[in-house]
Amino acid sequence: MSVLVYTENWDGKFKKLSFELISYGKELSKKLNTELVALSIGNVAESELQKLALYGADRIINVNKSELSFFDAQLYNSVLAKVTESVGAKLILFAHNNTGKALSPRLSVSLKAGLATAVIAQPDLTNGFIIRKKVFTSKAFANIKINSDIKILSLLQNSFGLLEDPKNAVIESFDTDMDFSDQKCKLMDVNKVSGKLILTDADIVVSGGRGMKGPENWGPIEELASLLGAATACSRPVADEHWRPHEEHVGQTGKVLSPSLYIACGISGAIQHLGGISNSKYIVAINKDPEAPIFEAADYGIVGDLSKVLPDLITAVKEFKA
């Protein structure tokens, strides 16, 4: 029996969320008194793989096959099912991101394993296996009991944090012994955002709404974001008006984020927008309207004119960084 963590790399480097997932898994494997196995699929250098041990991986399984260079949920799932069986995993952990959302449901069916997605905390093991998650787009919480022998969780990013727990892990190469000749999906084109922080990955997000008045006023948002090492985002009306690209739209029908800090500039805080940001640890709202609903959701607020507050804030951050 073991806890298996599915890790993800980006051009050979692990994402921060993979380390968070290992930290979460380690805590759980200690409670269950079992070992933690990390699985990496892709071309990752040994030195990078070793980083997984830093957060507590007891074993590291490496699947490096050129046929798997492209993410095909059906094939990846077959690999996962084999690895699960081989290490006797009873608990499999994913990040609740695009890849985790694509893989975990398939694995749930393959293994007849109960799945809880968008999990925000460690399970309660006192009376079975009860997991807590947000439902109704963060307007409520549910406690879900998983009754199956094998269990799968997908963890919402930034809900646990990083905990170092260095281990001496062995890197094991795993031979899938599978036929990859019949690929039903073919990759035609990749468009990776380069040099820019990935919005759903970002720890800090600076976001603008209609209160910014127009796309020409986005300079200070971008400057503040770059100073803080943050990604930029926007509200739905802003994307609809093509002031900003649709990839930046945050909200119920856009991207759902869980950063440590979300700074909302000129966003009134419609319920649909709040649905996309309510997993943030801290929310800062800057708005000229003191009655804007965003202040109900915010931890810190500034009522004021953005054309003045933003430059002041930029100056203050510069001083702070200096």
């Binding site: 749930s108 007849k112 394993a113 109960g114 799945l115 809880a116 009860i130 439902v135 963060s138 307007k139 409520a140 919480f141 549910a142 406690n143 879900i144 009991k145 998983i146 009754n147 199956s148 800062v284 709202a285 202040f295 109900e296 959701a297 915010a298 931890d299 810190y300 607020g301 500034i302 009522v303 004021g304 004119d305 003045k308 507050v309 002041d312 804030l313 203050a316 951050v317 001083e319 702070f320």
Partner: peptide, 29 residues
């Protein structure tokens, strides 16, 4: 059924937003 919903609850009322004077954004930092 592999899972069951045990119970539900609503988020606790959030602490009120702490307002910072627009003239003193340093306090926010």
């Amino acid at each position: 059924q592999l899972i069951e919903f045990v119970d539900f609850d609503l988020p606790k009322a959030k602490a009120a937003c702490r307002k910072i004077d627009a003239e003193n954004v340093k306090e926010l930092i």
